[in-house]
């Protein structure tokens, strides 16, 4: 009981945010791997998707993922509101300190990029997971869902492409602070290599968001079809 109460303290909250955040980041990597298979053609892509969907563990995994996601969102929002309460009367003039500060556009917009991501995820699930079901026959002769076709179709439309790219920029901003920040929140930021971690976080954010964003673009321009 006490442990639970302690987890809802300011530090406990940050530990949970970091833990759930890093887990979601892990999921993102898996997802990205799946996306990149698109470059190898529809067969590989759909085969991977099928393997995932047909795995009996997918339901518990999805529930877990959803739980992580909801906890992250809920905790982050509560934390944001609480933090706003810590300065009821704001400064009339406030500047960034510069110097040793790690403040960035990413760090100061976490709640907004986070909420945007929430919206994005909802739309994304609606479009793909619960979107049109096409089927095709896979390598083993079984019938699989043809997700490849779906996304090629979706990304013919400029609105989708643009909104996806924008969303990925926002996700990237979130990761730009989130990755290294969660190391800090968990207290596993190495003492002597802080700068390296910070830089790695930045590079990962750019690379991951970039790779996610590139797929809609190449589809749109017909480079992948």
């Amino acid at each position: 009981m006490r442990a639970l109460r302690m987890l809802s303290s300011s530090v406990g909250t940050k530990v949970i945010l970091a833990f759930t955040g890093l887990s979601l980041f892990g999921f993102l990597l898996v997802h990205l791997y799946g996306n990149l298979l698109a470059f190898l053609g529809p067969a590989t892509y759909n085969e991977h998707a099928h393997a995932l969907i047909s795995n009996p563990l997918i339901i518990p995994a999805e529930i877990g993922l959803l739980a992580l996601f909801l906890i992250h969102v809920f905790k982050a929002t509560a934390n944001y509101l609480n933090n706003r309460g810590a300065r009821p009367d704001g400064y009339r003039m406030k500047k960034w300190a510069g110097g040793a500060s790690r403040k960035s556009v990413g760090s100061s917009t976490m709640i907004w990029t986070g909420l945007a991501t929430l919206l994005f995820v909802a739309v994304h699930l609606k479009t793909f997971k619960y979107g049109a079901v096409y089927t095709s026959v896979g390598a083993g002769g079984t019938e699989e869902r043809d997700l490849y076709r779906l996304f090629v179709e979706v990304f013919q439309q400029p609105v989708w492409v643009i909104s996806y790219v924008v969303s990925m920029i926002l996700v990237g901003l979130h990761l730009r602070h989130g990755i290294s920040s969660s190391m800090q929140s968990l207290g596993i930021m190495p003492d002597t290599r802080t700068a390296l971690v910070l830089r790695t976080g930045l590079v990962l954010a750019v690379v991951i968001a970039g790779l996610f964003a590139i797929l809609p673009v190449v589809v749109f321009f017909g480079l992948v079809r």
Binding site: V11, N83, A86, R102, K103, S180, G187, M189, T194
Partner: peptide
């Protein structure tokens, strides 16, 4: 409030107290 790991505090600290302390606190905490 809670720490968002931005490090504005370290940047303005007259004694340059490092953000490392906060990482230590977090680790000690869990």
């Amino acid at each position: 409030g809670s720490c968002s790991n931005e490090g504005e505090c370290e940047a303005v600290c007259p004694k340059g107290i490092s953000l490392r302390n906060i990482a230590t606190m977090n680790r000690e905490y869990w």
